[in-house]
Nucleic acid binder design. Structure first.
Lengths: 141, 141
DNA sequence: TTATATCCGACAAAATAAGTCCTATTTTTT
DNA sequence: AAAAAATAGGACTTATTTTGTCGGATATAA
């Protein structure tokens, strides 16, 4: 419960690594070996990040991935949505309630939605530069 | 990913309901029927909440559950820990790294732990009165 | 003594996440 | 032109986690 998926972890590790390369290309294979990540999965992770323009890819021999956007311009939410889709913390609140046996009588729909908004804000306010490098932990958020 | 467990949802629904009864007893069966929750599961949820003293139970005929603590005195974290155990958002950061194939070379251990602290603070700062009833959504947290 | 309730462990089923397999496409080098 | 090295991506299997079920034990009021 409330755990990041492996895909998001792999994505963040890759972006961290690629960002440190300052615009130089990195291949999926290098990342896969460096971090012991199954290459097929990593491939798909990188492809999704590319599709959502968090990374740039170059195909063919001497190809690879590199980063073109500023880390301050990418939010944690961007990464999560790209790899896992939108964060939905509840079973009740997906929309119509067709998928929840409690929907009709549920008494926490509103509180859950409000809390979800709080979480979403936390993810969208957190840019990757702060996520990766900020030493100072802000006390309030 | 990042979804509340059914147990936590059931627990919150129950506490919400019981809190509205202002100290009167509520049976597991009533809750189970009202909210269409499998009675065996709900039983265990309520028992855990009792064990962690978020609810009080009265056994035997005419027994049931009631609430004795102020909602402002119970945090969302209390409920989650009681029903699911501590929130651990990563696969990497459980401690020794024995359970993570990336641990040795992982480059996001620190950021993940910091973010986990942020999340923990969000959960522990959120008391159930605010969670259930506060209409005004604070803009920053 | 019976009925109604909490209490609780072991197991089964379902849902989700993670990983594998296989192939296609693109581009540089030889 | 062919081969090699890289990204791209669908279909499927396995593993893990979550959810639910079954069976019974204990406690208390009527």
């Amino acid at each position: 419960m409330l755990k990041f998926s492996k895909k998001v972890e792999y994505g963040l590790m890759s972006i961290m690594h690629i960002a440190r390369m300052k615009g130089n290309k990195v291949t999926a294979r290098e990342l896969s070996e460096q971090y012991n990540i199954p290459p097929e999965i990593l491939g798909k992770v990188l492809q999704k990040l590319k599709k959502d323009q968090l990374l740039e890819s170059i195909q063919g021999v001497n190809g690879g991935y590199r980063i073109i956007r500023e880390l301050t311009d990418i939010s944690l939410e961007d990464v999560i949505i790209s790899l896992d889709g939108p964060v939905v913390i509840t079973h009740c609140c997906k929309g119509t309630g067709d998928d929840c046996t409690q929907f009709k009588t549920c008494n926490i729909i509103e509180p859950m939605q409000k809390f979800q908004n709080k979480l979403n804000k936390l993810f969208s306010d957190m840019n990757l530069n702060d996520f990766f490098f900020d030493e100072e932990q802000k006390v309030e958020f």
